[in-house]
Design a protein around this nucleic acid. Sequence first.
DNA 1: CTCTCATTTGGTAGTAACTATCAATTAGGA
DNA 2: TCCTAATTGATAGTTACTACCAAATGAGAG
Lengths: 200, 200
Amino acid sequence: MTSSASDRPAGLRERKKAKTRAAVQRHALRLFGEQGYAATTVDQIAAAAEISPSTFFRYFPSKEATVVYDELDPVLMRAAKAQPPELSATAALRATLREVFGGLSPEAWERERERQLLVFNEPELRAAVMEQYVAGIQLLADVAAERAGRSPDDFEVRNWAGAVVGVLMSAFLSSGGSEVADHMQLLDDAFAHLEAGLPL
Amino acid sequence: MTSSASDRPAGLRERKKAKTRAAVQRHALRLFGEQGYAATTVDQIAAAAEISPSTFFRYFPSKEATVVYDELDPVLMRAAKAQPPELSATAALRATLREVFGGLSPEAWERERERQLLVFNEPELRAAVMEQYVAGIQLLADVAAERAGRSPDDFEVRNWAGAVVGVLMSAFLSSGGSEVADHMQLLDDAFAHLEAGLPL
DNA sequence: CTCTCATTTGGTAGTAACTATCAATTAGGA
DNA sequence: TCCTAATTGATAGTTACTACCAAATGAGAG
Protein backbone atom coordinates (compact mmCIF):
# COMPACT_ATOMS: atom_id res chain seq x y z
CA MET A 1 0.00 0.00 0.00
CA THR A 2 1.70 3.16 -1.18
CA SER A 3 -1.09 5.45 0.07
CA SER A 4 -3.78 4.88 2.63
CA ALA A 5 -7.21 4.27 1.14
CA SER A 6 -8.97 5.86 4.11
CA ASP A 7 -9.52 9.27 2.50
CA ARG A 8 -9.66 11.06 -0.88
CA PRO A 9 -12.78 11.27 -3.10
CA ALA A 10 -12.77 7.45 -3.20
CA GLY A 11 -12.79 5.64 -6.52
CA LEU A 12 -15.79 4.37 -8.35
CA ARG A 13 -15.09 0.96 -6.95
CA GLU A 14 -15.36 1.97 -3.32
CA ARG A 15 -18.44 4.06 -3.89
CA LYS A 16 -20.18 1.22 -5.65
CA LYS A 17 -19.35 -1.15 -2.83
CA ALA A 18 -20.74 1.19 -0.21
CA LYS A 19 -23.90 1.63 -2.23
CA THR A 20 -24.38 -2.09 -2.69
CA ARG A 21 -23.82 -2.70 1.00
CA ALA A 22 -26.40 -0.11 1.96
CA ALA A 23 -28.90 -1.46 -0.58
CA VAL A 24 -28.54 -4.99 0.72
CA GLN A 25 -29.12 -3.87 4.28
CA ARG A 26 -32.08 -1.74 3.31
CA HIS A 27 -33.79 -4.55 1.43
CA ALA A 28 -33.00 -7.01 4.20
CA LEU A 29 -34.59 -4.83 6.86
CA ARG A 30 -37.57 -4.16 4.66
CA LEU A 31 -38.18 -7.84 3.99
CA PHE A 32 -37.70 -8.72 7.64
CA GLY A 33 -40.33 -6.16 8.53
CA GLU A 34 -42.76 -7.45 5.91
CA GLN A 35 -42.35 -11.21 6.34
CA GLY A 36 -40.51 -11.71 9.59
CA TYR A 37 -36.86 -12.56 10.06
CA ALA A 38 -36.99 -16.33 9.95
CA ALA A 39 -39.34 -16.41 6.96
CA THR A 40 -37.00 -14.28 4.87
CA THR A 41 -34.24 -16.19 3.10
CA VAL A 42 -30.85 -14.90 2.08
CA ASP A 43 -31.77 -15.75 -1.50
CA GLN A 44 -34.73 -13.40 -1.31
CA ILE A 45 -32.59 -10.59 0.03
CA ALA A 46 -30.02 -11.16 -2.68
CA ALA A 47 -32.71 -11.17 -5.36
CA ALA A 48 -34.22 -7.94 -4.04
CA ALA A 49 -30.83 -6.25 -4.01
CA GLU A 50 -30.06 -7.71 -7.44
CA ILE A 51 -26.92 -9.56 -6.48
CA SER A 52 -26.13 -13.25 -6.31
CA PRO A 53 -26.36 -15.12 -3.00
CA SER A 54 -22.60 -15.57 -3.16
CA THR A 55 -22.14 -11.85 -3.23
CA PHE A 56 -24.45 -11.40 -0.28
CA PHE A 57 -22.01 -13.31 1.90
CA ARG A 58 -19.16 -11.16 0.62
CA TYR A 59 -20.89 -8.09 2.05
CA PHE A 60 -22.25 -9.59 5.25
CA PRO A 61 -20.77 -12.57 7.07
CA SER A 62 -24.21 -13.81 8.02
CA LYS A 63 -27.90 -13.06 7.75
CA GLU A 64 -27.84 -11.76 11.31
CA ALA A 65 -25.16 -9.23 10.49
CA THR A 66 -27.54 -7.20 8.32
CA VAL A 67 -29.46 -6.34 11.47
CA VAL A 68 -26.87 -6.46 14.17
CA TYR A 69 -24.23 -4.27 12.58
CA ASP A 70 -24.05 -1.10 14.64
CA GLU A 71 -22.74 1.99 12.91
CA LEU A 72 -22.89 3.98 16.14
CA ASP A 73 -20.22 2.13 18.08
CA PRO A 74 -17.19 4.05 16.77
CA VAL A 75 -18.99 7.36 17.18
CA LEU A 76 -19.77 6.52 20.79
CA MET A 77 -16.18 5.54 21.46
CA ARG A 78 -14.81 8.79 20.14
CA ALA A 79 -17.33 10.88 22.07
CA ALA A 80 -16.56 8.96 25.25
CA LYS A 81 -12.85 9.59 24.97
CA ALA A 82 -13.46 13.30 24.42
CA GLN A 83 -15.24 13.77 27.74
CA PRO A 84 -13.46 16.00 30.30
CA PRO A 85 -11.32 13.85 32.59
CA GLU A 86 -12.69 15.28 35.82
CA LEU A 87 -16.05 13.55 35.28
CA SER A 88 -16.66 10.23 36.99
CA ALA A 89 -16.96 7.19 34.76
CA THR A 90 -20.72 7.12 35.04
CA ALA A 91 -21.09 10.87 34.55
CA ALA A 92 -18.88 10.71 31.46
CA LEU A 93 -21.00 7.89 30.11
CA ARG A 94 -24.21 9.82 30.64
CA ALA A 95 -22.75 12.86 28.91
CA THR A 96 -21.62 10.71 26.01
CA LEU A 97 -25.01 9.15 25.50
CA ARG A 98 -26.74 12.53 25.66
CA GLU A 99 -24.29 13.93 23.15
CA VAL A 100 -24.43 11.16 20.58
CA PHE A 101 -28.09 10.24 20.75
CA GLY A 102 -29.14 13.85 21.14
CA GLY A 103 -27.33 14.74 17.91
CA LEU A 104 -28.93 12.00 15.86
CA SER A 105 -30.95 12.85 12.78
CA PRO A 106 -34.65 11.91 12.79
CA GLU A 107 -34.11 9.35 10.05
CA ALA A 108 -31.28 7.75 11.99
CA TRP A 109 -33.54 7.57 15.02
CA GLU A 110 -36.28 5.98 13.00
CA ARG A 111 -33.92 3.38 11.57
CA GLU A 112 -32.53 2.68 15.01
CA ARG A 113 -35.98 2.26 16.46
CA GLU A 114 -37.02 -0.15 13.73
CA ARG A 115 -33.89 -2.16 14.23
CA GLN A 116 -34.53 -2.40 17.93
CA LEU A 117 -38.12 -3.43 17.40
CA LEU A 118 -37.01 -6.19 15.07
CA VAL A 119 -34.27 -7.39 17.35
CA PHE A 120 -36.60 -7.29 20.30
CA ASN A 121 -39.08 -9.68 18.72
CA GLU A 122 -36.74 -12.27 17.20
CA PRO A 123 -35.01 -14.55 19.70
CA GLU A 124 -32.18 -15.34 17.30
CA LEU A 125 -31.40 -11.70 16.85
CA ARG A 126 -31.65 -10.96 20.52
CA ALA A 127 -28.93 -13.50 21.18
CA ALA A 128 -26.75 -11.89 18.54
CA VAL A 129 -27.25 -8.44 19.97
CA MET A 130 -26.41 -9.67 23.43
CA GLU A 131 -23.05 -10.70 22.05
CA GLN A 132 -22.62 -7.07 21.08
CA TYR A 133 -23.44 -6.03 24.60
CA VAL A 134 -20.77 -8.37 25.88
CA ALA A 135 -18.26 -6.81 23.53
CA GLY A 136 -19.51 -3.54 24.93
CA ILE A 137 -18.28 -4.56 28.39
CA GLN A 138 -14.77 -4.66 27.03
CA LEU A 139 -15.08 -1.32 25.27
CA LEU A 140 -16.53 0.39 28.32
CA ALA A 141 -13.88 -1.13 30.55
CA ASP A 142 -11.16 0.20 28.26
CA VAL A 143 -12.51 3.73 28.27
CA ALA A 144 -13.20 3.78 32.00
CA ALA A 145 -9.79 2.31 32.75
CA GLU A 146 -7.99 5.01 30.82
CA ARG A 147 -10.05 7.71 32.49
CA ALA A 148 -9.40 6.35 35.97
CA GLY A 149 -5.77 5.53 35.29
CA ARG A 150 -6.33 1.84 35.98
CA SER A 151 -5.97 -1.41 34.09
CA PRO A 152 -8.87 -2.58 31.88
CA ASP A 153 -8.56 -5.89 33.71
CA ASP A 154 -9.03 -4.19 37.07
CA PHE A 155 -11.74 -5.93 39.04
CA GLU A 156 -13.73 -2.81 39.89
CA VAL A 157 -13.43 -1.41 36.41
CA ARG A 158 -14.81 -4.59 34.88
CA ASN A 159 -17.50 -4.77 37.49
CA TRP A 160 -18.58 -1.24 36.70
CA ALA A 161 -18.66 -2.01 32.99
CA GLY A 162 -20.70 -5.16 33.59
CA ALA A 163 -23.27 -3.35 35.70
CA VAL A 164 -23.55 -0.55 33.15
CA VAL A 165 -24.11 -3.00 30.33
CA GLY A 166 -26.66 -4.82 32.44
CA VAL A 167 -28.55 -1.60 32.99
CA LEU A 168 -28.45 -0.88 29.26
CA MET A 169 -29.72 -4.37 28.47
CA SER A 170 -32.53 -4.07 30.94
CA ALA A 171 -33.54 -0.66 29.64
CA PHE A 172 -33.45 -1.97 26.11
CA LEU A 173 -35.61 -4.94 27.01
CA SER A 174 -38.11 -2.94 29.05
CA SER A 175 -38.81 -0.36 26.39
CA GLY A 176 -39.85 -2.60 23.53
CA GLY A 177 -40.63 0.26 21.23
CA SER A 178 -41.29 3.41 23.18
CA GLU A 179 -40.68 7.02 22.34
CA VAL A 180 -37.23 8.35 21.73
CA ALA A 181 -37.04 11.23 24.20
CA ASP A 182 -38.52 9.05 26.91
CA HIS A 183 -35.84 6.54 26.26
CA MET A 184 -33.08 9.06 26.86
CA GLN A 185 -34.69 10.16 30.11
CA LEU A 186 -35.11 6.56 31.17
CA LEU A 187 -31.44 5.83 30.66
CA ASP A 188 -30.45 8.87 32.64
CA ASP A 189 -32.67 7.87 35.52
CA ALA A 190 -31.30 4.35 35.36
CA PHE A 191 -27.71 5.51 35.72
CA ALA A 192 -28.63 7.83 38.57
CA HIS A 193 -30.24 4.89 40.34
CA LEU A 194 -27.13 2.83 39.70
CA GLU A 195 -24.81 5.45 41.14
CA ALA A 196 -26.96 5.58 44.26
CA GLY A 197 -26.32 1.88 44.89
CA LEU A 198 -29.63 0.64 43.48
CA PRO A 199 -31.84 1.10 46.54
CA LEU A 200 -35.19 -0.64 46.39
CA MET B 1 -53.79 -38.34 32.07
CA THR B 2 -55.50 -40.04 34.99
CA SER B 3 -52.54 -39.63 37.33
CA SER B 4 -49.61 -37.26 37.26
CA ALA B 5 -46.40 -38.85 35.99
CA SER B 6 -44.24 -36.65 38.21
CA ASP B 7 -43.67 -39.26 40.93
CA ARG B 8 -43.78 -43.04 41.58
CA PRO B 9 -40.92 -45.46 40.82
CA ALA B 10 -41.30 -44.46 37.15
CA GLY B 11 -41.77 -47.10 34.48
CA LEU B 12 -39.08 -48.64 32.38
CA ARG B 13 -39.95 -46.21 29.64
CA GLU B 14 -39.25 -43.08 31.65
CA ARG B 15 -36.06 -44.44 33.11
CA LYS B 16 -34.77 -45.36 29.70
CA LYS B 17 -35.53 -41.92 28.39
CA ALA B 18 -33.68 -40.22 31.23
CA LYS B 19 -30.72 -42.50 30.68
CA THR B 20 -30.63 -41.82 26.97
CA ARG B 21 -30.86 -38.09 27.56
CA ALA B 22 -27.97 -38.15 30.00
CA ALA B 23 -25.90 -40.32 27.67
CA VAL B 24 -26.44 -37.98 24.75
CA GLN B 25 -25.41 -34.99 26.80
CA ARG B 26 -22.38 -36.78 28.19
CA HIS B 27 -21.13 -37.81 24.77
CA ALA B 28 -21.84 -34.39 23.37
CA LEU B 29 -19.79 -32.63 26.02
CA ARG B 30 -17.00 -35.15 25.67
CA LEU B 31 -16.82 -34.70 21.91
CA PHE B 32 -16.99 -30.93 22.19
CA GLY B 33 -14.07 -31.04 24.59
CA GLU B 34 -12.05 -33.31 22.32
CA GLN B 35 -12.74 -31.75 18.93
CA GLY B 36 -14.28 -28.38 19.60
CA TYR B 37 -17.93 -27.42 19.37
CA ALA B 38 -18.15 -26.39 15.73
CA ALA B 39 -16.12 -29.36 14.50
CA THR B 40 -18.45 -31.84 16.19
CA THR B 41 -21.53 -32.75 14.17
CA VAL B 42 -24.87 -33.86 15.49
CA ASP B 43 -24.42 -37.08 13.54
CA GLN B 44 -21.25 -37.81 15.48
CA ILE B 45 -22.98 -37.24 18.78
CA ALA B 46 -25.88 -39.46 17.74
CA ALA B 47 -23.50 -42.19 16.63
CA ALA B 48 -21.57 -42.01 19.90
CA ALA B 49 -24.78 -42.24 21.91
CA GLU B 50 -26.02 -45.01 19.60
CA ILE B 51 -29.19 -43.32 18.48
CA SER B 52 -30.27 -41.97 15.14
CA PRO B 53 -29.89 -38.28 14.29
CA SER B 54 -33.67 -38.01 14.26
CA THR B 55 -33.80 -39.20 17.82
CA PHE B 56 -31.17 -36.70 18.86
CA PHE B 57 -33.54 -33.88 17.97
CA ARG B 58 -36.30 -35.56 19.98
CA TYR B 59 -34.17 -35.25 23.10
CA PHE B 60 -32.63 -31.84 22.47
CA PRO B 61 -34.17 -29.10 20.35
CA SER B 62 -30.76 -28.06 19.05
CA LYS B 63 -27.07 -28.82 19.26
CA GLU B 64 -26.65 -25.83 21.54
CA ALA B 65 -29.16 -27.16 24.01
CA THR B 66 -26.85 -30.01 25.05
CA VAL B 67 -24.54 -27.41 26.55
CA VAL B 68 -26.79 -24.57 27.50
CA TYR B 69 -29.41 -26.43 29.51
CA ASP B 70 -29.08 -25.30 33.12
CA GLU B 71 -30.31 -27.67 35.77
CA LEU B 72 -29.55 -25.17 38.54
CA ASP B 73 -32.10 -22.51 37.66
CA PRO B 74 -35.10 -23.98 39.52
CA VAL B 75 -32.94 -24.71 42.56
CA LEU B 76 -31.77 -21.11 42.65
CA MET B 77 -35.31 -19.83 42.37
CA ARG B 78 -36.54 -21.91 45.29
CA ALA B 79 -33.60 -20.91 47.48
CA ALA B 80 -34.11 -17.24 46.62
CA LYS B 81 -37.77 -17.33 47.63
CA ALA B 82 -36.87 -18.98 50.93
CA GLN B 83 -34.64 -16.13 52.07
CA PRO B 84 -35.85 -14.15 55.13
CA PRO B 85 -37.86 -11.12 54.01
CA GLU B 86 -35.93 -8.62 56.08
CA LEU B 87 -32.86 -8.97 53.85
CA SER B 88 -32.34 -6.46 51.08
CA ALA B 89 -32.64 -7.73 47.53
CA THR B 90 -28.90 -7.82 47.07
CA ALA B 91 -28.24 -9.40 50.45
CA ALA B 92 -30.85 -12.07 49.74
CA LEU B 93 -29.19 -12.75 46.40
CA ARG B 94 -25.78 -13.13 47.96
CA ALA B 95 -27.15 -15.50 50.57
CA THR B 96 -28.87 -17.53 47.88
CA LEU B 97 -25.73 -17.91 45.80
CA ARG B 98 -23.69 -18.92 48.84
CA GLU B 99 -26.31 -21.46 49.79
CA VAL B 100 -26.79 -23.10 46.42
CA PHE B 101 -23.24 -23.05 45.13
CA GLY B 102 -21.83 -23.84 48.54
CA GLY B 103 -23.95 -26.99 48.74
CA LEU B 104 -22.94 -28.32 45.37
CA SER B 105 -21.28 -31.72 45.06
CA PRO B 106 -17.71 -31.80 43.72
CA GLU B 107 -18.84 -33.63 40.58
CA ALA B 108 -21.52 -31.04 39.94
CA TRP B 109 -18.92 -28.33 40.33
CA GLU B 110 -16.60 -30.04 37.91
CA ARG B 111 -19.34 -30.42 35.32
CA GLU B 112 -20.37 -26.82 35.78
CA ARG B 113 -16.82 -25.62 35.37
CA GLU B 114 -16.31 -27.63 32.21
CA ARG B 115 -19.53 -26.28 30.78
CA GLN B 116 -18.49 -22.72 31.54
CA LEU B 117 -15.08 -23.23 29.97
CA LEU B 118 -16.71 -24.55 26.82
CA VAL B 119 -19.28 -21.82 26.63
CA PHE B 120 -16.63 -19.23 27.29
CA ASN B 121 -14.53 -20.25 24.31
CA GLU B 122 -17.23 -20.77 21.69
CA PRO B 123 -18.88 -17.60 20.34
CA GLU B 124 -21.99 -19.46 19.23
CA LEU B 125 -22.54 -20.84 22.68
CA ARG B 126 -21.86 -17.54 24.34
CA ALA B 127 -24.70 -16.03 22.35
CA ALA B 128 -27.01 -18.80 23.46
CA VAL B 129 -26.06 -18.34 27.08
CA MET B 130 -26.76 -14.63 26.81
CA GLU B 131 -30.35 -15.52 26.14
CA GLN B 132 -30.30 -17.31 29.46
CA TYR B 133 -28.97 -14.22 31.14
CA VAL B 134 -31.77 -12.19 29.64
CA ALA B 135 -34.28 -14.65 31.00
CA GLY B 136 -32.43 -14.28 34.29
CA ILE B 137 -33.26 -10.57 34.39
CA GLN B 138 -36.94 -11.47 34.39
CA LEU B 139 -36.55 -14.12 37.09
CA LEU B 140 -34.55 -11.85 39.34
CA ALA B 141 -36.99 -9.01 38.84
CA ASP B 142 -39.86 -11.31 39.84
CA VAL B 143 -38.20 -12.44 43.04
CA ALA B 144 -37.01 -8.97 44.01
CA ALA B 145 -40.42 -7.49 43.27
CA GLU B 146 -42.18 -9.93 45.54
CA ARG B 147 -39.67 -9.30 48.31
CA ALA B 148 -39.99 -5.52 48.04
CA GLY B 149 -43.74 -5.57 47.54
CA ARG B 150 -43.45 -3.92 44.16
CA SER B 151 -44.37 -4.77 40.59
CA PRO B 152 -41.92 -6.83 38.50
CA ASP B 153 -42.31 -4.11 35.88
CA ASP B 154 -41.24 -1.45 38.35
CA PHE B 155 -38.46 0.66 36.87
CA GLU B 156 -36.10 0.38 39.81
CA VAL B 157 -36.71 -3.31 40.24
CA ARG B 158 -35.87 -4.01 36.62
CA ASN B 159 -32.88 -1.73 36.80
CA TRP B 160 -31.59 -3.60 39.82
CA ALA B 161 -32.09 -6.93 38.06
CA GLY B 162 -30.29 -5.68 34.97
CA ALA B 163 -27.30 -4.44 36.92
CA VAL B 164 -27.09 -7.69 38.87
CA VAL B 165 -27.14 -9.74 35.71
CA GLY B 166 -24.52 -7.47 34.20
CA VAL B 167 -22.28 -8.04 37.20
CA LEU B 168 -22.79 -11.78 36.91
CA MET B 169 -21.97 -11.70 33.21
CA SER B 170 -18.86 -9.69 33.76
CA ALA B 171 -17.68 -11.94 36.57
CA PHE B 172 -18.38 -14.97 34.44
CA LEU B 173 -16.45 -13.53 31.51
CA SER B 174 -13.50 -12.35 33.57
CA SER B 175 -12.85 -15.65 35.27
CA GLY B 176 -12.51 -17.91 32.26
CA GLY B 177 -11.78 -20.99 34.30
CA SER B 178 -10.57 -20.11 37.74
CA GLU B 179 -10.97 -21.92 41.03
CA VAL B 180 -14.34 -22.50 42.57
CA ALA B 181 -13.89 -20.91 46.00
CA ASP B 182 -12.24 -17.89 44.45
CA HIS B 183 -15.21 -17.50 42.19
CA MET B 184 -17.61 -17.33 45.11
CA GLN B 185 -15.46 -14.73 46.83
CA LEU B 186 -15.24 -12.74 43.62
CA LEU B 187 -19.00 -12.64 43.25
CA ASP B 188 -19.40 -11.50 46.83
CA ASP B 189 -16.92 -8.70 46.34
CA ALA B 190 -18.65 -7.72 43.12
CA PHE B 191 -22.02 -7.33 44.79
CA ALA B 192 -20.50 -5.36 47.65
CA HIS B 193 -18.97 -3.01 45.10
CA LEU B 194 -22.33 -2.73 43.38
CA GLU B 195 -24.16 -1.86 46.58
CA ALA B 196 -21.60 0.85 47.25
CA GLY B 197 -22.52 2.56 43.99
CA LEU B 198 -19.58 1.24 41.97
CA PRO B 199 -16.94 3.80 42.95
CA LEU B 200 -13.83 3.83 40.81
C1' DC C 1 -49.31 -65.38 28.05
C1' DT C 2 -51.03 -62.87 24.15
C1' DC C 3 -53.11 -59.33 21.71
C1' DT C 4 -53.65 -54.56 20.98
C1' DC C 5 -52.51 -49.71 21.26
C1' DA C 6 -49.88 -45.75 22.02
C1' DT C 7 -45.24 -44.28 22.24
C1' DT C 8 -40.75 -44.30 20.56
C1' DT C 9 -37.61 -44.92 17.03
C1' DG C 10 -35.04 -44.89 12.52
C1' DG C 11 -34.94 -43.67 7.77
C1' DT C 12 -35.87 -40.72 3.88
C1' DA C 13 -36.45 -36.41 1.79
C1' DG C 14 -36.24 -31.65 1.96
C1' DT C 15 -34.94 -26.63 3.33
C1' DA C 16 -31.80 -23.01 4.37
C1' DA C 17 -27.50 -21.00 6.03
C1' DC C 18 -23.21 -21.06 5.08
C1' DT C 19 -18.21 -22.45 2.62
C1' DA C 20 -14.95 -23.35 -1.11
C1' DT C 21 -13.72 -22.85 -5.61
C1' DC C 22 -13.35 -21.39 -10.37
C1' DA C 23 -14.32 -18.98 -14.51
C1' DA C 24 -16.01 -14.65 -16.35
C1' DT C 25 -16.40 -9.76 -15.93
C1' DT C 26 -14.88 -5.17 -14.81
C1' DA C 27 -12.38 -1.15 -12.91
C1' DG C 28 -7.90 1.30 -12.64
C1' DG C 29 -3.32 2.23 -13.84
C1' DA C 30 0.85 1.91 -17.02
C1' DT D 1 -4.89 0.20 -25.30
C1' DC D 2 -3.48 -3.57 -22.63
C1' DC D 3 -2.40 -5.74 -18.22
C1' DT D 4 -3.42 -6.75 -13.58
C1' DA D 5 -6.14 -7.20 -9.64
C1' DA D 6 -10.52 -6.92 -7.65
C1' DT D 7 -15.35 -8.25 -7.96
C1' DT D 8 -18.85 -11.16 -9.32
C1' DG D 9 -21.89 -15.34 -10.31
C1' DA D 10 -22.44 -20.09 -10.64
C1' DT D 11 -21.80 -24.70 -9.04
C1' DA D 12 -21.19 -28.15 -5.62
C1' DG D 13 -20.81 -29.35 -1.02
C1' DT D 14 -21.60 -29.51 4.30
C1' DT D 15 -24.47 -29.12 8.33
C1' DA D 16 -28.29 -27.93 11.38
C1' DC D 17 -32.84 -28.75 11.53
C1' DT D 18 -37.97 -30.21 9.98
C1' DA D 19 -41.71 -33.17 8.28
C1' DC D 20 -43.21 -37.51 7.55
C1' DC D 21 -43.91 -42.50 7.45
C1' DA D 22 -43.15 -47.18 8.66
C1' DA D 23 -41.08 -50.48 11.88
C1' DA D 24 -40.14 -51.73 16.64
C1' DT D 25 -41.24 -51.78 21.51
C1' DG D 26 -43.12 -51.17 26.21
C1' DA D 27 -47.66 -51.05 28.93
C1' DG D 28 -51.86 -52.64 30.02
C1' DA D 29 -56.39 -55.55 29.06
C1' DG D 30 -58.23 -59.86 28.50
